[in-house]
Simulated scan of single mutants.
Amino acid sequence: MYAKIYRPRPSAMSSGRANAQHWVLEFDSDEPHAIDPLTGNAISTDTREQIRMTFETLEEAVAFAKANDMPHRVHGSTDTKRIPRSYSENFDFNRKLPWTH
Rank of each mutant, 00 (worst) to 15 (best):
Ile35Leu: 14
Asp28Val: 13
Asp46Ser: 08
Thr80Asp: 13
Ser88Pro: 00
Ser11Pro: 08
Ser14Asn: 05
Gly16Leu: 10
Arg82Leu: 12
Met53Pro: 00
Asp30Tyr: 03
Ala67Asp: 12
Gly76His: 09
Asn41Gly: 09
Thr57Trp: 06
Asn19Asp: 14
His33Cys: 06
Thr39Gln: 01
Ile35His: 05
Ile83Trp: 08
Thr57Gln: 01
Tyr2Ser: 01
Arg17Lys: 13
Val74Phe: 06
Glu26His: 08
Ala61Asn: 08
Ile51Ser: 08
Asn41Gln: 11
Arg17Pro: 00
Val74Gln: 06
Asp79Val: 07
Arg95Phe: 00
Arg9Thr: 09
Glu60Ser: 13
Phe55Thr: 04
Val24Gly: 06
Val74Leu: 04
Ser86Lys: 14
Ala34His: 12
Ala63Val: 05
His33Ile: 00
Ile51Met: 09
Glu60His: 14
Thr45Arg: 12
Thr54Leu: 01
Pro84Glu: 02
Phe27His: 12
Asn41Tyr: 15
Thr47Val: 14
Gly40Ile: 01
Glu59Arg: 10
Ile51Asp: 07
Asn94Tyr: 04
Pro10Ala: 02
Val24Trp: 05
Ile51Asn: 05
His72Tyr: 15
Ser11Asn: 13
Glu49Phe: 03
Trp99Thr: 07
Ile35Gly: 05
Pro32Tyr: 04
Glu26Arg: 14
Gly16Arg: 13
His33Lys: 10
Ala61Lys: 07
Ser88His: 12
Arg48Lys: 07
Ser11His: 14
Arg48Cys: 01
Asp30Ile: 06
Asp69Tyr: 06
Ser15Ala: 14
Gln21Met: 10
Asp28Trp: 02
Phe91Thr: 12
Pro32Gly: 11
Ser77Thr: 12
Ser29Met: 07
His75Glu: 15
His75Tyr: 15
Ile51Phe: 05
Asp30Met: 07
Phe93Gln: 15
Thr54Gly: 02
Glu49Cys: 06
Leu38Lys: 09
Ser14His: 07
Tyr2Ile: 03
Phe55Leu: 03
Arg52His: 03
Gly76Leu: 08
Leu97Ile: 15
Asn19Thr: 10
Leu97Thr: 15
His75Thr: 10
Tyr6Ser: 11
Glu26Lys: 15
Asp46Lys: 09
Ala12His: 04
Ala67Pro: 02
Pro71Asn: 08
Glu59Tyr: 04
Arg73Thr: 03
Ala65Glu: 01
Arg95Val: 00
Asp79Tyr: 08
Pro98Glu: 00
Lys81Trp: 08
Ala20His: 15
Asp92Thr: 11
